[in-house]
């Protein structure tokens, strides 16, 4: 993924499913073109990734060394 023009971060750790998914969807709805949304989560959000993939939305994720999962959505 290219370096984003600007980034928004949503920290959804410590929330019960499906709240992290709902937060991500709300943030995505307001995301201007070219911006990247960074989601911080306790675990890999398989349902969200599945839907992003289905909708052709650009996304990547990684598990950090401290166990936090970072999902990057959007961007040019």
């Amino acid at each position: 993924m290219n370096a984003p023009a600007s980034q928004r971060v949503v920290d959804a750790r410590g929330l019960e499913p499906p709240e992290p998914f709902e937060l991500a969807m709300e943030a995505l709805a307001d995301l201007p073109n070219g911006e990247v949304l960074t989601l911080l989560l306790d675990r890999v959000p398989w349902p969200l990734l599945r839907i992003l993939e289905r909708d052709g939305q650009r996304h990547e994720y990684r598990v950090r060394e401290d166990g936090v999962v970072e999902v990057l959505i959007g961007g040019a």
């Binding site: 993924m1 890999v44 398989w46 349902p47 990734l49 599945r50 993939e53 996304h59 990547e60 994720y61 990684r62 598990v63 990057l72």
Partner: peptide
């Protein structure tokens, strides 16, 4: 980053 292309279980 890794894993975005991994097969997702929810398909099944």
């Amino acid at each position: 980053m890794s894993g975005a292309r991994r097969t997702l279980g929810y398909e099944a």
